[in-house]
């Protein structure tokens, strides 16, 4: 019981995997499929890692899905105009960084509620994306080298999985081992206390929002590389799923704080459910119903578990 209370989310993942493995031993349980799941979760998890940074502050960034779409459309539009990859990739990331700085300044300097500031900014970015793309799917002019960034495998590990591993490692170190990470947790825990001991509260908040947008843009670039095309609402599904992953992750550990391992676990649960249900032939609308129900169950278990602490 204590195990369930403390590591309930991890236990849930193991149980879900076990159920699918029993229900569909050949297809779900195969090594190839499990590797495939890591690839399926990778882009979602990268967006969710960015959202985690902002959640540590106790804030939301609702513009992440708009930034994912923007990065895809902006990159293909620039490729179409003949720009080289070496310029497009950093430029798109830079544009997202600027967007994140704007959110961060609105929230940290001008004290706008992050919910409103990033919802509005997301709407602006969405509009810009439609403007650049004329509402159409873009696919011409994408160089093959770019496509390799989101496809294929190295030594049997899918490239998106490698990206995720790198991003997760870097940001786990940032949140867990650096002074910046500790400051973010302090600011999220008590912003006034952080200010009163002399922490650079505003600067750190802006940096967190900027990194969140940067990771959303990276996910958008990798998505475009994988698909070979970009749609102006291509990132639409990431917002709710990313926050679902973060919330599931917050239930994973005793402290109930957002963390990179927690978010990875949350993203894994979402990916496993989606993959397993697809293999079992469950229609996608029922998958959504079950995903939502599982998230509610996980948070409820955590809630009642905490009361017992």
């Amino acid at each position: 019981m204590i195990l369930l209370r403390r590591y309930g989310t991890l236990v849930a993942l193991v149980v879900i995997v076990a159920i699918f493995a029993i229900a569909s031993p050949g297809a779900f349980g195969s090594v190839a499929n499990l590797v495939n799941i890591t690839q399926q979760m990778s882009l979602l998890a990268i967006v969710a890692i960015g959202a985690t940074l902002v959640m540590v502050l106790g804030e939301f960034d609702l513009s992440v899905s708009a930034v994912v779409s923007w990065a895809g459309i902006a990159s293909v539009a620039l490729f179409g105009a003949g720009w080289p990859l070496a310029l497009v990739f950093p430029l798109v990331l830079l544009s997202a960084l600027v967007m994140g700085v704007v959110s961060g300044v609105l929230v940290a300097r001008f004290a706008l509620p992050s919910f409103i500031a990033t919802l509005a900014l997301g709407t602006v970015i969405g509009g810009l994306t439609f403007w650049v793309s004329n509402g159409a799917t873009l696919f011409s002019g994408i160089p093959p080298v770019f496509r390799a960034l989101g496809r294929g495998a190295i030594l049997g590990v899918p490239v998106p999985t490698l990206w995720l591993a790198g991003v997760a490692l870097v940001f786990w170190l940032v949140l867990d081992q650096t002074e910046f990470g500790r400051r973010l947790y302090a600011i999220g825990g008590n912003r006034e206390a952080a200010r009163l001991v002399g922490l650079p509260v505003r600067r750190d908040m802006v940096v967190a929002f900027a990194l969140c947008a940067l990771l959303a843009a990276l996910a958008g670039l990798l998505l475009t590389a994988r698909l070979g095309s970009a749609h102006p609402t291509g990132g639409g599904g990431y917002l709710l799923q990313a926050y679902a992953a973060v919330f599931l992750g917050m239930t994973a550990f005793r402290e109930g704080e957002p963390s990179i391992p927690g978010t990875l676990l949350g993203a894994a649960i979402i990916a496993v459910i989606s993959n397993g249900l697809t293999i079992l032939g469950v229609p996608s609308f029922l998958q959504d119903v079950m995903t939502g129900a599982i998230i509610i169950a996980a948070v409820l278990i955590r809630h009642f578990g905490r009361e017992g602490d």
Partner: peptide
């Protein structure tokens, strides 16, 4: 209200400033 942040451990809180 002005000094403690729940997410940090005691030791991290001590080192914070």
């Amino acid at each position: 209200r002005e000094a403690l942040a729940a997410p940090l451990s005691i030791e991290a809180s001590l080192a914070l400033p």
